[in-house]
Amino acid sequence: MSNEYPALPPQQPGRDGEAAHRPQYPHPPYPHPQVPAGMPAAVRAAQVVIFALAGLGVVHSALVGAFSGAEAAGRAFAPYLTAWVLLVLAFLFPSAGPGVRVAALVLGSVQILLALGGAAQGTPFGILPLAGAVAVVVLLGQGSAGDWFRRPRTR
């Protein structure tokens, strides 16, 4: 076994007669961010929280509707309205760009405000949509989530 390194390819002279020391690229050597191999745990967790939050809204309003009527069911569902739009966005997380992340962060913030209003009015389980929305905003606000949504995608 030899400790020698393989010979370097011959250098082409540069413009000023010296050997060119930089490799030739088919495009300029811009720094490329490391592309994540799969969806980061923070993005996947946010997706799961959104799925659970939307399901919880349906179950909660159905139970309230069964025991208290349609009007009460509508009031119980109000804090979960943005969770349904977030649900649509959550299905786009695997292939979407940074606009979906920004929209999800904004809707999560609106969900926090709606849930605070519902909790202040004494809505049963009003704290659950608040906790879910806070979790979504925190998870999508992480750097790994930003890297995921900014990654280069092939068409």
Rank of each mutant, 00 (worst) to 15 (best):
1 M>Y: 07
2 S>D: 01
5 Y>L: 00
7 A>E: 02
8 L>S: 12
8 L>M: 06
8 L>T: 00
10 P>K: 14
10 P>A: 14
14 G>C: 14
14 G>A: 12
14 G>I: 07
16 D>P: 08
17 G>T: 13
18 E>Y: 14
18 E>K: 12
20 A>I: 04
20 A>W: 09
22 R>M: 08
23 P>H: 11
25 Y>C: 12
25 Y>F: 15
27 H>W: 13
29 P>R: 15
30 Y>G: 06
30 Y>S: 09
31 P>E: 12
31 P>I: 11
31 P>S: 08
32 H>C: 11
34 Q>R: 14
34 Q>L: 06
35 V>W: 08
42 A>G: 06
43 V>I: 13
44 R>I: 06
45 A>S: 15
45 A>W: 00
46 A>Q: 09
46 A>H: 09
47 Q>G: 09
47 Q>H: 11
48 V>K: 09
49 V>H: 12
49 V>K: 13
50 I>K: 11
50 I>T: 12
51 F>I: 04
51 F>V: 13
52 A>R: 15
54 A>N: 13
54 A>T: 10
56 L>Y: 14
57 G>Q: 15
59 V>N: 07
60 H>P: 04
61 S>G: 04
62 A>C: 12
64 V>W: 01
65 G>I: 10
67 F>M: 06
69 G>C: 04
71 E>S: 05
73 A>R: 05
74 G>L: 10
75 R>G: 05
76 A>G: 02
77 F>S: 13
78 A>R: 11
78 A>D: 11
79 P>Y: 02
79 P>M: 04
79 P>K: 03
80 Y>T: 03
81 L>A: 10
81 L>K: 06
81 L>I: 01
82 T>V: 04
83 A>I: 00
83 A>C: 00
83 A>H: 09
84 W>I: 02
88 V>R: 05
91 F>G: 14
91 F>R: 08
93 F>T: 02
94 P>I: 08
96 A>L: 00
96 A>S: 15
96 A>I: 00
98 P>C: 01
98 P>A: 13
99 G>K: 00
99 G>H: 06
100 V>D: 00
100 V>Y: 07
105 L>D: 00
106 V>E: 07
106 V>S: 06
106 V>L: 11
107 L>S: 00
114 L>S: 08
115 A>F: 05
116 L>P: 03
118 G>H: 14
118 G>L: 04
120 A>Q: 05
123 T>D: 02
124 P>R: 13
126 G>D: 12
126 G>E: 07
130 L>D: 09
130 L>F: 10
132 G>C: 02
133 A>T: 02
133 A>I: 09
134 V>M: 15
134 V>S: 06
134 V>E: 07
136 V>N: 02
139 L>E: 12
140 L>C: 04
140 L>V: 05
141 G>S: 00
141 G>F: 02
146 G>P: 01
148 W>M: 11
148 W>K: 05
149 F>W: 09
149 F>R: 00
153 R>A: 01
153 R>C: 03
153 R>P: 03
153 R>S: 08
153 R>F: 08
